[in-house]
Design a protein around this nucleic acid. Structure first.
Lengths: 109, 109
DNA sequence: CCTACATATGCATATATATAGATATACCGA
DNA sequence: TCGGTATATCTATATATATGCATATGTAGG
């Protein structure tokens, strides 16, 4: 439980969750949107995964991360409430815009 | 939102929330149960209050803290789910036991 | 007022967490 | 198998958070 809240208690990880609401993303897409170093993004994603907030789906050399849909009750409830929050935040909106237009074939090379 | 999760991302603060499920407590009672320094307990309570998770009710020289019952949706939902979690945890059980028998007139002198 | 007590705040320090940079691992295609 | 690419891990450092101690604030009662 503490692990779940620790995972949520970081602005960049909340940004990741908000952009995953739109669609699953691979590490390089998240890296691109957050404009941070790739190892850093990978680490944040790992923390969210360990907490059960997101799931990873490895396909080839990519790892697609998506919001968890079978976590425990607390996780499901929090993810649901998060969807109705922060949608007018300029930063989250910009992130989503970037995520929407991100193309991994352009980004990751 | 981030402030809420930061407040929840600490074992001692989760202990406080679990013991407040039973009944409101003053700072010295929380201090006694957690066996930590009084300023430390006061600080944790302040963080929980700032996050809207608990409310303070000053009566005389005591300040009674209780679970918030009019927070935003996320807070209410989390507090509700927390009530169904960890009730078999030995530490939480011991805390509740101590809180149940705590008497501020004996403790705070 | 003055004292005693409950609570809160300031400050220094220890500890945990985030970030940066280098490198390792895993996978695909030629 | 080799080279390129996506992802993960390691180490060091910066930054944030928790704790301990001293002290301030605020209140009740004499």
């Amino acid at each position: 439980m503490e692990k779940i809240f620790k995972a949520l208690a970081d602005r960049n990880r909340l940004r990741i969750l908000k952009m995953l609401e739109r669609r699953p993303l691979c590490v390089c897409e998240v890296t691109s949107v957050l404009e941070m170093a790739q190892p850093n993004a990978s680490r944040h994603l790992g923390i969210l995964r360990e907490a059960g907030l997101i799931e990873d789906d490895k396909s080839g050399r990519w790892v697609n991360y998506s919001l968890s849909d079978q976590g425990d009750e607390m996780v499901s409830a929090i993810l649901a409430y998060l969807k109705g929050w922060g949608n007018e935040d300029p930063l989250f909106k910009a992130d989503r815009q970037k995520a929407a237009t991100a193309d991994r074939r352009r980004l990751c090379r």
